[in-house]
Design a protein around this nucleic acid. Structure first.
Length: 879
RNA sequence: GGGCGCAUAGCUCAGUUGGUUCAGAGCAUCUGCCUUACAAGCAGAGGGUCGGCGGUUCGAAUCCGUCUGCGCCCACCA
């Protein structure tokens, strides 16, 4: 790129990504190095990139790039998840747009459409990750529903079935009437919802099905289900209701007779103490029904409409029916009152439909032993969580895990490998052929046509829990005779997993279970939980709110490097991220700063004969120290997954120390050349800085690193080693900080007095001021420094323990200056008094560690010398 | 209802087993500068009783108790 131009990320990003791809720099094969492995949290195959992906994958990419530069064999496996419910609902919606209903086509036809959709949209998100700079090993791209991985899922099902851990049972499940499938407990979100408490009169039957004038009152939120009532239940200890024993009551509107029963489940002080029992449409009522042998009458169909068993309002949606039946009840005189009521209602995570409890036959996987093992993995520390507070959450869930409902009434996914015989018996085998053989052992006369495969598919998480294994060797899970291949042996367990905390149970916990089950050990060493990306106002980013920017627009506008920085700047571990575009602007500004500093350095001409100036020589020594010190800090941050701290540390090193101090010190006057030694050192520092920043800003660093020197064919910053922390002089760093502070004071003085930055001034310092730093002051503050005291008018200030005096003959008001010094003197005396009081405290001296007391003594000495210095200055002013 | 966590500058957050002048950073704000790398910039400045109260200690932003205000997870009182 032209040196004089402004930085233009568009010219840079595509060029280098193409170069990296072309040379297969991201590809990894097992070798003798230590592996560093990450498997991507697979995004939904039909998804598009959102800010959560940006955060997550930026963090992943920073870690993988850092490891690569640290000399490890870095492998980041990308891929996508078939996401059965999400994808199926998109395909259904698309077909609807084409005038096709899912009900009218066969499973095979539907799947054809679904695969077409996948082929069309499935690669999009992976392409988008490339724009972000993700250095995935694209040759290893996987899809949870590709044939080999699907086969692994099927074998896994068979494995657990044979182990006796998978069973089919009729259970009350969470039914999603929009997606028309059962969903797991974890996919139900309970939200407090405004509704009403309807108090209904149920009249006592006279025994012949006619109402008497006696009645009881029940309170319900779901009046539309009364037609499915099987009983009225009261607490046996509730004396208020003893008169109801043995009575029967009539369901309003339809006058069906139901008994009054007693069960401890009923809370006496909630509602009216009478509960209507509706076994088909409430989990608890179902349990009560089992205990009391009540009939189960289902009146709501799969789509949430009343069916003919309801007798009235047949075909109406449950919410419409609720409204209508309230009117009917009122008319019939059964409605006593309506109260406002807020109660938790379950919503489907995917469709946001209100979940309908529904009885159905589903497949379950027993969790007890799996959860126990997976808890042990984390408790023993073999898998660490960052931040640590997720241990508690995890433990609680593992100790209370309920069996996992793994069947889904969908078509998009791995079909359950269970075949039913005509007599209802079931065989579970990896494929139809094996199923037939198994069936023929039961009944030799059976043919393939007699077998019927289960219609359901498996929960998506039942395939993604194998991810860290199956991406390397899909033959392995559920295949006891198979030796793990070289990849699996080398890359498993993976190193770090970066993911959002909301899938800790869906995915993280279950990967640990599958890892322990099949590999006998944990799937990853560390799990880093990111926060959730929110907007400035703290709202979760969502499509419906429209508060989520399109990451690709941001990348186009500001550049991928800037977007990555913007994301990381506010991403301290475990906290939610409050995204604001100004952070991305800050990232872009940093790119510009780096670019401009490069322009400065490359624009210099070099004079081999010129000697190195004192200021430059000092600057080189100092920056070398500062660099070493900072590298150590950055390494420490990385080791604790404090990525944003690592970034901020480097940011300040580059901007404040390198640009504002170092380059200003070594910068030759306009038009003059720089000496060779300083030039080489400056380029060397630049190289180190680029390598230090590369994991967070891959593109601009590659561009500049390539331009910084003649690089060999195929050389890249991707594999350039991370700068190592060397020895450094903490003293020099401290001394420089003093000089920098002094220079700042002098600049402020100039501004205050209206003295041009170029006008030379005389500065007098006392002997305690580090002499090595004189050139810094001379260059940066435009002063001539000498040791000693000056007589006459001037301005004085204290830096560290040194007294500095700037001669300003004729330009200071002696009275004003005296007043300032006196104020300073007073402050120092107060401070001294404080320190002395502390030292006079016997308990302090007795209890505090020696080092702490020594510090106090030093403070005392320093304060004394400062006071002395100020008094001297006051004397000079004639006070 | 149970559990976990948070509260520090206008905003977002550091503050690593209580102790260096420890009250910090970045952004934002204000002032002065278009100074031949950079106005997407430079040089400065202001700004906080560390949520309230109480306790432990020679010493508390840091430990304990309590109150207030938030957030998250789990949870089927119809």
């Amino acid at each position: 790129m032209e040196l004089n131009a402004k930085y233009d990320h568009r010219e840079v990003e595509d060029k280098w990504y193409a170069y990296w791809l072309e040379n297969k720099f991201f590809h990894s094969e097992p070798d003798s190095r230590e592996p560093y492995t990450i498997v991507i949290p697979p995004p939904n195959v039909t998804g598009i990139l959102h800010m959560g992906h940006v955060l997550n994958n930026t963090l992943n990419d920073v870690l993988i790039r850092k490891a690569r530069m640290d000399g490890r064999n870095a492998c980041w496996v990308p891929g996508t998840d078939h996401a059965s419910i999400a994808t199926e609902s998109k395909v259904v919606a698309k077909l609807k747009g084409m005038g096709i209903s899912k009900d009218d086509i066969t499973r095979e036809e539907f799947l054809k459409y679904a695969w077409e959709w996948k082929e069309e949209h499935g690669g999009i998100i992976l392409q988008q990750l490339r724009k972000l700079g993700c250095s995935c090993d694209w040759d290893r791209t996987r899809f949870t529903m590709e044939p080999a991985l699907s086969a692994a899922v099927i074998r896994t099902f068979v494995h657990f079935y044979r182990k006796g851990w998978i069973y089919k049972g009729v259970r009350m499940v969470n039914w999603d009437p929009v997606a028309l499938t059962a969903v797991s407990d974890d996919e139900v979100i309970h939200k407090d919802t405004q509704s009403h408490f309807y108090h209904l009169k149920y009249f006592i039957s006279d025994g012949a099905g006619n109402p008497t004038d006696q009645y009881l009152v029940i309170a319900t939120t779901r009046p539309e289900t009364i037609m499915a009532d099987a009983a009225i239940c009261v607490n046996p200890a509730d004396e208020r209701h003893h008169w109801l024993r043995g009575k029967k009551v009539l369901i309003p509107l339809i006058n069906r007779e139901i008994p009054v029963i007693e069960d401890d489940y009923v809370e006496m002080d909630f509602g009216t103490g009478c509960l209507k029992v509706t076994p088909a449409h409430d989990v608890h009522d179902y349990e009560i029904g089992l205990r009391h042998n009540l009939p189960v009458l289902e009146i709501i169909d799969d789509r949430g409409r009343l069916n003919e068993k309801a007798q009235i309002l047949v075909g109406e949606d449950r919410f419409v029916a609720r409204k209508k039946i309230v009117g009917m009840l009122e008319e019939a005189g059964n409605l006593l009152k309506i109260e406002d009521y807020t109660s938790p209602v379950g919503y489907s995570e995917r469709t946001d439909a209100v979940i309908e409890p529904k009885l159905s036959a589903q497949w379950f996987l027993k969790m007890d032993l799996l959860a126990k093992t997976a808890l042990e993995t984390v408790e023993s520390g073999r898998t660490r969580f960052i931040p640590e507070r997720y241990y508690n959450t995890y433990r609680h869930w593992m100790e209370n895990a309920r069996d996992w409902c793994i069947s889904r009434q969908l078509w998009w996914g791995q079909r359950i490998p269970a075949w039913y015989l005509p007599d209802g018996q079931v065989v579970v085998e990896p494929d139809a052929e094996a199923a037939l053989k198994a069936a023929q052992k039961i009944n030799p006369a059976l043919t393939a046509a007699d077998l019927r495969q289960d219609e359901d598919v498996l929960d998506t998480w039942f395939s993604s829990w194998l991810w860290p294994i199956s991406v390397f060797d899909p033959e392995f899970p559920g295949n006891p005779d198979h030796e793990p291949n070289a990849d699996l042996k080398y890359y498993y367990p993976t190193s770090d997993l970066v993911t959002a905390p909301d899938i800790i149970f869906f995915w993280v916990a279950r990967m640990i279970m599958a890892g322990e089950e099949f590999m006998g050990r944990e799937p990853f060493s560390n799990v880093y939980f990111t926060g959730i990306v929110r907007d400035k106002l703290g709202r979760k980013m969502s499509k419906t709110l429209g508060n989520s920017p399109d990451p690709l627009d941001l990348i186009a506008k500001y550049g991928a490097d800037a977007v990555r920085i913007g994301m990381l700047l506010c991403a301290s571990a475990g906290n939610d991220i409050f995204y604001d575009e100004s952070q991305v602007e800050q990232g872009r500004n940093f790119c510009a700063k780096i670019w401009n500093s490069f322009r400065l350095v490359r624009g210099w001409t070099v004079d081999d004969a010129a000697p190195q100036g004192e200021a430059a020589a000092l600057a080189v020594r100092w920056f070398s120290d500062k660099l070493s010190q900072t590298v150590a800090t950055v390494e420490d941050h990385y080791s604790k997954f404090r990525i944003s701290d690592a970034l901020m540390t480097v940011y300040r090193l580059f901007w404040d120390d390198y640009c504002s101090w170092y380059l200003e010190l070594v910068k030759p006057a306009y038009g003059t050349p720089v000496d060779r030694r300083t030039y080489e050192a400056t380029l060397g520092f630049f190289d180190s800085l680029l390598r230090l920043i590369h994991p967070v800003m891959p593109f601009i660093t590659e561009e500049l690193w390539q331009a910084l020197a003649d690089r060999r064919e195929g050389e890249t910053i991707l594999f350039a080693p991370t700068p190592k922390a060397g020895e450094y002089s903490a003293q020099r760093i401290a001394d420089f900080a003093l000089a920098a502070e002094a220079a700042g004071n002098i600049r402020a003085l100039r501004q205050e007095k209206g003295i041009s930055p170029k006008e030379p001034l005389d500065l007098y310092v006392d002997a305690s001021f580090p002499q090595e730093m004189f050139p810094v002051l001379e260059k940066l503050a435009g002063v001539h420094v000498s040791v000693g005291e000056a007589a006459g008018a001037g301005a004085s200030f204290v830096v560290g323990t040194s007294k500095l005096f700037v001669a300003l003959e004729g330009r200071v008001d002696a009275a004003e200056e005296t007043a300032k010094l006196q104020a300073d003197l007073e402050y120092q005396r107060k401070f001294l008094a404080g320190v002395r009081a502390k030292l006079a405290n016997e308990k302090f001296v007795a209890h505090a560690p020696e080092a702490v007391v020594a510090v106090e003594r030093k403070k005392e000495a320093d304060a004394l010398s400062r006071i002395e210095a100020i008094e001297t200055a006051l004397k000079a002013l004639g006070a």
